[in-house]
Design a binder for these strands. Structure first.
Lengths: 131, 131
DNA sequence: TGTGCATCCTGTAGTAACTACAGAATACAG
DNA sequence: CTGTATTCTGTAGTTACTACAGGATGCACA
């Protein structure tokens, strides 16, 4: 139920119409149902999946990596060991991303704070991401 | 001191040599000194800057956005108000990225935990990034 | 019941951010 | 001093979009 055309999906997810069709060609979005006249029809599930893909892209995951994440849910027949192998590397990667962002955040906030006290900031931002 | 050639910079930062030259062409890395025979010479500062750029890219920032972040440190003549304007939007964006990653992390860990108890996971991962 | 503007279709071409390769010069280890 | 490694410039290919072009269909409104 609640069928929507590609334009509405685009607005709902803030993903460009052409990008949606590109994801379809790439097999990262499933082939949607079509209306009698060949127009694509989407449902709530597609909105969720596309939101997920879009946010992952914004977090620096490649389409290949996203395919890997989606495979966790697309096929329900992974063994326990496989799930572990797939999630462990991803959680490690995510933890690292969070840590890097946390450091950037810290330095930016500090910068703004110093600044508001009238001090000209010097240059700690770059070091913040250097291990 | 401690001058290194492009190959060492590439190894030190895990950034492809061709990508380093590409960043130079794009003006995101400064034109380096050259040896007598025209070979690029880098220093510790370049390692830090390139590490920063590389990590930002891995966190989903575009080169344009990274240019904006670097401008905070490249020119020391921002006014306090400008620093605030630039940092506030960035910190908002970073907070959002952290929150999205945190949710993904939670769901992946939960998935692995359920799995290790022998339960077949169903499908919460996609919802985790759906507001 | 027309009619005109919005939305959709396919297909192709352009852009951003790399990445790889060709062909030549220089560095340096044994 | 000779051969393998590294660097150089320049160009072409790849990934992930993004923007048309040209045509068909949908739908609000007179």
């Amino acid at each position: 139920m609640n069928a929507i055309p590609i334009g509405k999906l685009s607005v709902a997810t803030d993903v460009n119409i052409e990008t949606i069709r590109y994801y379809e060609r790439e097999g990262i979005l499933p082939l949607p149902k079509r209306s009698e006249n060949g127009r694509r029809i989407y449902f709530e599930e597609d909105v969720r999946r596309l939101n997920f893909i879009h946010k992952c892209r914004g977090l620096g995951f490649s389409l290949k990596e996203i395919r890997g994440l989606l495979s966790l849910v697309d096929t329900g027949d992974f063994t326990c060991g496989e799930i572990h192998a797939l999630t462990i590397e991803h959680t490690r990667q995510i933890a690292e991303k969070i840590e890097n962002l946390r450091r950037m955040q810290e330095v930016l906030l500090e910068m703004a704070a110093h600044c508001s006290k009238g001090k000209v900031p010097d240059c700690p931002i770059i070091d913040s991401l250097y291990e």
